[in-house]
Design a protein around this nucleic acid. Structure first.
Length: 241
DNA sequence: GACTGATCATGG
DNA sequence: CCATGATCAGTC
């Protein structure tokens, strides 16, 4: 443990810890995560000498990145699980105090160029969701970011029922993409899994396959989980009351 | 409140 | 450009 000057000036002294190394086991990861339950984000950030932005308008990835640091994730923005040695993906999930999930969950980008995986079993979506550590962040929409509270982590793999629901959606969406039905590549399809725009701007374009097999330019898409799905994941595994 | 399209930061 | 991390914000 070292002492350093506070990031915004010489007035305050604070105790700053280095980020922990990756956990060696799922048990260790879950213990670390559950040890954070009940802490405010500002408390966790302070350990690592980080300032919490007042809101996420310009820092939408802050919470995920903070918790990656706190739990010893290593993958950064590489195309690997957050904990490569464990094959576990970390997903923070905003929930209201009553336990309702407040946002959808991004899974991965959707290849629109005909390179979408051939089967659900081989799909990027399924690999991403094979093992997920859900970390609820308890807040209302107007709760300042520093005051948001970490909830009880859940280490999850899809049940056979959940897998079946996701597979059905994926197969349907993959069929549409294979046919170049870009008009159908919107959020209105899918019970649990949906396609949405995934780009910095609505005007961003990428090459993708059109209806007659021609190349067209359109806004990139990503796969997202609807809140109804993540809601059930949490409800099925968290004691209520 | 749910839903859908739009958007923000960062790194390679 | 693509990937990582997501939430914002308007409309129904």
């Amino acid at each position: 443990m070292v002492q350093r000057r506070d990031s915004d000036g010489a007035r305050a002294w604070s105790t700053v810890e280095p980020a922990p190394p990756p956990p060696h086991s799922e048990d260790e990861l879950v213990r670390r995560a559950r040890a954070l339950a009940g802490r405010r984000l500002e408390e966790v950030a302070a350990r690592y000498g980080l300032r919490v932005p007042p809101d996420q308008r310009r820092h939408k990835g802050f919470v995920g990145q903070l918790l990656e640091t706190a739990l010893g994730a290593t993958a950064g923005n590489r195309a690997e699980p957050d904990f490569p040695g464990l094959g576990v993906e970390l997903k923070t999930l905003p929930v209201s105090p009553d336990g309702s999930v407040r946002e959808s969950t991004f899974v991965c980008t959707a290849p629109m160029d005909g390179t979408l995986d051939v089967t659900w079993e081989a799909s990027w979506v399924r690999h991403k969701l094979a093992r997920v550590l859900w970390l609820p962040i308890v807040s209302e929409a107007d709760t300042p970011l520093p005051e948001r509270v970490i909830g009880g982590a859940i280490l999850w793999s899809p049940s056979s029922d959940e897998d079946a629901v996701l597979r059905a959606d994926w197969v349907d969406l993959a069929d549409r993409l294979a046919l170049g039905e870009l008009g159908a590549a919107n959020a209105s399809h899918g019970v649990a899994l949906q396609l949405r725009p995934k780009a910095a701007r609505a005007t961003d374009e990428a090459w993708m396959l059109g209806e007659d097999g021609e190349w067209v330019r359109d806004n990139p898409r990503g796969f997202y989980l609807r809140t109804s799905f993540t809601q059930r994941v949490l409800r099925a595994r968290v004691r209520v009351g």
